[in-house]
Amino acid sequence: MQILLTLDKKDYEEGMPVFEKYSTRGVIIRDGKIATQHGSAGDYKILGGGVEPGEKLEDALIREVGEESGLIVIPESIRPIGEIVERRRDLFEKNKIYVCHSCFFFCDAKEEMTQTHMTESEIAKGFHLEWATAQEIIDGNEPFCETQPWSFRDREFVKMLVEKKILTT
């Protein structure tokens, strides 16, 4: 998958053990708005999450989008966009380097929806499905970019969409 951007905080020491993770992000656009998880604090997340061992990226995308939003991805609509690679000191194990490969896909969703299955953390943060404009995502994530790496990642991705560095067709 094409690398769109590498975000490297360089806050670690070379030679530290690496924890590597793959995740998927579903970019679903309707009426000029993007499906997001919107938190009660005002932040936005592009729908998606971690890939389980042995799981295909497309299967993880369908599962994660459904769990977080209740949207049902149409499998034949999935189109790869590219990957954002994040490198930083692990937030939980400070002696490790965290490397996350976020694989972004355009996809469409059915009109009908299913029950969400959010994590306790997502529920605690008040996340819910919201269709947001690119500008709402960029502005909403701005205050969180220093403290929530995913807010920075998703803001940068949406900026690339707005700047036509990523084609939506």
Rank of each mutant, 00 (worst) to 15 (best):
L71D: 07
L57E: 11
K110R: 15
Y22D: 15
F144E: 04
F106M: 11
Q135M: 09
D154V: 01
A132R: 04
A35M: 05
G50H: 11
E122W: 04
T36Q: 03
Q37R: 11
F152A: 14
K94H: 06
S77M: 13
L5I: 05
G82P: 10
R89N: 02
I97Y: 07
P149Q: 11
P149G: 11
N95S: 14
W150Y: 10
T114K: 14
S121F: 05
F152T: 08
E112I: 00
F157N: 01
V73P: 10
M118Y: 02
G54F: 09
I84N: 06
M1K: 04
R89T: 09
S102R: 07
T133K: 03
E93V: 13
S23A: 13
F127V: 02
R25E: 10
M16Y: 06
G15M: 05
S40T: 03
V65E: 09
D31R: 09
I34T: 10
E58L: 12
I62Y: 10
E64T: 02
F157M: 07
G39F: 12
G140V: 04
C100N: 14
I84G: 06
A41Q: 12
M160Y: 05
R79V: 12
V51I: 15
A134L: 01
Y22K: 15
C107W: 00
R153A: 10
E20Q: 12
I46K: 07
E67F: 12
L5P: 01
T119G: 11
T133D: 03
G126R: 01
I28M: 07
M16S: 14
D43F: 15
I123V: 15
R79D: 02
I137N: 03
Y44I: 04
T119K: 13
R63V: 00
I123L: 12
E14R: 10
R30L: 07
F92T: 15
K45G: 11
E93W: 09
G42S: 08
A41S: 15
G126A: 00
E163T: 02
K125P: 00
I81V: 11
I97T: 08
R79T: 10
R63M: 13
I28D: 00
D31S: 12
F127P: 00
M16L: 11
G66F: 06
L167Y: 06
F144M: 03
K164R: 10
S77Y: 12
E163Q: 12
T168I: 10
D8T: 02
H117L: 04
M113H: 11
H128P: 02
G26Q: 08
E130W: 04
E130D: 05
F152D: 12
L129F: 08
E120P: 07
R63K: 11
G39H: 15
K96Y: 15
A134W: 06
D11I: 00
R155K: 14
S23V: 01
M16R: 11
P75K: 09
I74F: 09
I137S: 06
A41C: 13
F92H: 15
C107Q: 08
T133L: 05
D108R: 14
D11G: 03
S151T: 14
I138D: 08
